[in-house]
Amino acid sequence: MDIVVLVKQVPDTEALIQIAGDGVSIKTDNIKWVMNPYDEFAVEEALQIRDANEGTVTILTMGTDKAVETIRTALAMGADQGVLINDPAAEGSDGLAVAKILAAALKDIPYDLIIAGQRGVDDDGYQVGAAVAEYMGIPQASLVIKEEISDGKIKCDCSIEGGTVVTEAPLPVLFTTQRGLNEPRYASLPGIMKAKKKPLDQKTLADIGIDPSTVGLANRKVKIKALNPPPERKAVKMIEGETPEELAAALIKVLHEEAKVV
């Protein structure tokens, strides 16, 4: 079973996000970059499937030099090899262009299964996984909390509003992760040492046959015109009262009569 995991490096979810001077991007200094949390579930699941079925786990990402760190993290967790598409012309690509680039890279990587995070917690676009599945012409399953592979098929429990849908499709399949799928392992010290020697291939757009004039910032179909901070709330109104009963009564009164929400 050869598995490819699509990984992205994103700002840590505890990071304070500030809008840069250009008004369309964020300030990247002082940001701690981490593996997208949903991709950690993807790496963990890939390792578990590989260990039960043999095969390889390849980490595929598009990014700049700093993305090497995230690939090394996945290798330290136990993945076998990494591929980084690193090309200045690819920077600023939107989800569709990233998917085209990853799909082009996948032509040179054997796979039975592709696992991706449900979304990157940076642009929250939900675009890349589904588009890669589309470009590879394979079925997808989203928000998977459990999977089972047998007889060349994968059964996925996909979380939906208020429940679960169980789907089945013949491999190869791309599925995306949801919290609850597994508990991602931490990289061990020996794992970190080993990761340094594992293959990490860096490729340019030319290497994978992508015309640079079709991707990148200038060719986005999703164009960011402006970033704005969310509207500020008015200062909090602290409810006054001597006893819990008084506090509760005053709160429910204001919710009922002023806000009219209860």
């Binding site: 929250d124 939900y126 675009q127 589904a130 588009a131 589309e134 989203s142 939906i160 509003e161």
Partner: peptide
């Protein structure tokens, strides 16, 4: 919705057009 989050990105890729979520 969950269904929309599965469907919209696949449709956008099929039709090669821009999609915005949420």
């Amino acid at each position: 919705s969950v269904q929309g989050k599965d469907l919209a990105p696949r449709l956008a890729a099929r039709l090669d057009t821009g999609m915005a979520m949420d």
